[in-house]
Amino acid sequence: MRPAHSASLEFDYPDERRARIVERAVAVEVGEIDDARSGASVERDGTTVVITVKAGDLVALRAGMNSWIRLAETAESVSQAGDRRARSA
């Protein structure tokens, strides 16, 4: 794939622990959901997780962005549910 388009998503968290949890949860998907039209990378800088999607065309970029947003949202939801459960135990 020769990426002609790219976009980055930045997710900011209240603390490094939450950012690390989300980053580790989504980073395992790098290379797994990539295809011939798009790919992604995941990085964390303190409390910010940055997901960069690169694609050969705009349709693939949109699809990739949607997939990575859903992955990050799911990781956030599961992390928050785990925190709530730990507090109530």
Rank of each mutant, 00 (worst) to 15 (best):
R37I: 01
R20A: 15
T48I: 12
G64L: 01
L71C: 05
G56V: 04
F11P: 00
D34R: 05
R44W: 13
S38L: 05
L58S: 08
V50Y: 04
D35R: 05
A81C: 02
T74I: 12
P14Y: 14
A75I: 01
S38V: 11
D34M: 14
D57N: 15
G39T: 06
A81K: 11
M65F: 07
T74M: 03
V30D: 06
A27I: 00
S41G: 12
G56N: 01
E43P: 00
A36V: 04
R18G: 03
S67M: 10
I33M: 07
D35K: 03
S6H: 10
A75F: 12
V50G: 13
E23H: 09
V42N: 04
V50K: 14
I51P: 08
A40E: 00
V42D: 09
D34C: 05
T52F: 00
V53C: 06
V59E: 13
R17T: 10
R17F: 10
G56R: 07
E10K: 12
P3C: 00
G56F: 01
V49I: 06
S6K: 05
E23P: 01
I69T: 05
E23K: 08
I69W: 11
V28Y: 09
R44Y: 14
R18E: 13
T74D: 07
P14A: 15
R37G: 14
Q80M: 03
E23R: 12
R2H: 10
Q80V: 07
A36P: 09
L9F: 07
D34N: 09
D15I: 00
R20L: 10
P14D: 15
I51R: 01
P14S: 15
W68T: 07
I51M: 08
H5Q: 06
D15E: 11
L61I: 09
V59S: 06
I51C: 09
L9W: 01
N66P: 00
D45G: 12
L61E: 03
V30H: 03
A27D: 09
L9Q: 00
V22Y: 08
A81E: 14
G82L: 15
T52A: 04
V22I: 13
S38A: 12
R37C: 11
V26A: 10
S67C: 10
A25H: 08
Y13N: 09
A40K: 02
